[in-house]
Amino acid sequence: MSFAVVVFYFFAAILLFAAFRVITTRNPVHAALYLVLAFFTAAGLWLMLDAEFLAITLVLVYVGAVMVLFLFVVMMLDINLDRLRDGFWDYLPLAGFVATMLAVEMGIVLGSRNFGLSIVPAPSLHPAGYSNTKELGGLLYTQYVYPFELAAVVLLVAIVAAITLTMRRRKNSKYQNPAEQVKIQRGERVRMVEMASDQPSSTKS
């Protein structure tokens, strides 16, 4: 067994363990942290495939940004686990059916027929100075420019939709207007009072 294979199984074992714990652990914060671990080891696996740009971007975007926001929300929720598990047996048949269908579909799509070693061979060794990032950028902005722009527009629509959904003006909300604050002159806030200085007649009483 070569060193690379050992590293692969090491990462794969951690990834599977973490993914399993995400759905079995009782505490939602722990689940989110296990998901972080899963993303991180997945990035390690991608790194082994010479996809360093994708691997680092996975850490940057999912671990560094998305999961932080997830944790934020999950930490502040007061989740009652017993209430969550209330309808477990009622939903089990339907959920089980959906899960099986998902697994079968993924098996068909991701099976060896489409993603086998003969169709997607292991990446060949690149010469020194080969830049993964440059290659990816070139492809994204030439061959795949329309799908790329489309994805960007879809994301933009999602952002706009999310913001409109949460933009609810409360009537009694209080906020500062920084422009107004900056414009303030001294005369509007301070009143100078002229008064004669007077000395107390005796300092000791």
């Binding site: 914060v29 942290l33 972080v36 360093e52 740009f53 680092i56 971007t57 850490v59 940057l60 671990v63 560094g64 940004a65 932080v68 944790l71 934020f72 930490m75 830049s131 993964n132 990032t133």
Partner: peptide
């Protein structure tokens, strides 16, 4: 001497926030 050094720095420094969040929680 990593090719994507700047990206690596961005990714690694973005992990620092976990220490803060977990410490508080």
């Amino acid at each position: 001497n990593v090719d994507a050094g700047l990206l690596y720095i961005l990714a690694i420094t973005s992990l620092g926030v976990y220490g803060v969040i977990i410490a508080g929680w």
